[in-house]
Amino acid sequence: MKDLMGMMKQAKAMQERMQSLQQEIAEVSATGQSGGGMVTMTLNGKGDMTTLAIDPSLVKPDEADILEDLVIAAHADAKTKLEVIVQEKTQELTAGLQLPGGMKLPF
């Protein structure tokens, strides 16, 4: 019974840390760029785009496809950076815990 109570306390503490982590992740952001910085965007911790900056020299009607590709590339760059941040923060939280392989937290 003592072990069960200890496990319950650990589970409650883990739940509290997970809530804290989710709040912390919601506050981080990552900025990605493409075209040598001509297209820049920022994503928040939830993956929502919060800013988009496009160099005016790229806004040409006959080159819309290039601009579209650069926006997609900047988004991919920001998303990759954001995933690294989330993974690092999750590893900090779960350090020392015995979790099953492949388990993705906090989502």
Rank of each mutant, 00 (worst) to 15 (best):
V59W: 08
Q15A: 07
T94V: 14
P100D: 00
K9M: 08
K60D: 00
M5L: 14
L58C: 05
K60C: 03
T50P: 15
G96V: 13
K79D: 13
A74S: 13
P100T: 05
L52R: 04
A74E: 03
T94M: 12
G102K: 02
A13L: 12
P100H: 04
G36H: 06
Q15S: 04
M38A: 06
T94A: 15
A26T: 06
M18W: 10
G47C: 09
V59L: 10
T90K: 02
Q10I: 04
E88C: 12
T31F: 09
T90F: 00
K89D: 04
I66N: 06
L58F: 12
T42A: 02
A78K: 03
V86S: 06
V39M: 08
A53W: 15
A11M: 10
G36R: 05
K46H: 14
F107I: 14
D77E: 11
L82K: 05
Q22K: 13
M103H: 13
Q33M: 10
Q22C: 12
P100W: 00
P61I: 00
K104I: 15
A53N: 14
T80F: 13
K60E: 00
E83P: 02
E88I: 03
E16H: 10
K12R: 07
V84L: 12
S29P: 03
T51D: 07
A64D: 09
D62K: 06
E16C: 05
E68F: 08
L99K: 09
L67K: 09
D48F: 09
L43G: 11
M5I: 09
I54H: 08
K89A: 08
Q22R: 09
L43R: 00
D48H: 13
L97P: 00
L70M: 15
L99S: 08
E24I: 01
T50A: 14
V39W: 12
G6K: 15
K60L: 07
I85P: 05
G96L: 14
